[in-house]
Amino acid sequence: MKTLAKLLMLVILFSSFSCRDTKKEEAETKAKLEVIDDVEQKLDSVSNDIENKAEALEDAVKELDSI
């Protein structure tokens, strides 16, 4: 009976530590995903700016060619 109680205590102890680690890992993963999402949004906005400026340059070149 004592060994069963010890075994049960060990299982409870290990499960509590493993849950804590999982929560920490989930929090870290969430933080990393938020950083990745921010970088993707910035990349999209920069890409759109570049496309708009490229179109403006093409229009300017066409205007110069027509002169």
Rank of each mutant, 00 (worst) to 15 (best):
V11S: 00
E55I: 11
V35C: 08
D37T: 13
S18I: 14
S66T: 03
N48P: 00
E34I: 08
V46F: 12
D38P: 00
D38H: 01
A5D: 12
T29P: 01
E51I: 05
Q41L: 10
L10I: 13
E51S: 07
C19I: 05
V46T: 06
E55N: 14
A56L: 07
V39Y: 05
F14L: 09
L43C: 09
D37Y: 09
M1L: 14
K32C: 06
Q41K: 08
A27S: 15
A31N: 12
E28M: 14
S47W: 11
I50R: 02
K30Q: 11
T29F: 13
L4R: 13
V46C: 14
M1K: 04
L33Y: 03
A60Q: 04
I50N: 00
E51T: 12
M9Y: 15
K42L: 13
E28I: 15
E63W: 07
N48R: 04
V35R: 04
K2G: 03
S15Y: 09
E55Q: 15
E55F: 13
K62P: 01
K62Y: 08
V35A: 10
L33T: 11
V35L: 07
K24L: 12
D59R: 05
R20L: 13
S66N: 01
D37R: 05
K23P: 00
A31R: 06
R20K: 04
E51D: 11
V35G: 07
A60G: 01
T22Q: 13
R20G: 03
K2S: 06
A54L: 08
N52K: 04
D38E: 11
D59I: 02
I36A: 08
K30N: 09
L57I: 14
D49G: 02
V61L: 02
S66E: 11
T29H: 08
D65S: 06
K32M: 12
L13G: 09
E25K: 15
C19T: 03
D59N: 04
V46W: 10
K53G: 02
L7V: 11
D49E: 12
E63V: 07
D59A: 14
M1H: 10
A60K: 02
V39G: 01
M9T: 13
C19W: 06
K53E: 14
L4K: 03
A31Q: 09
I67F: 15
D21N: 11
D38V: 10
K53V: 09
E26Y: 15
K62D: 09
M1R: 10
R20E: 10
E55S: 08
S45V: 08
I50F: 15
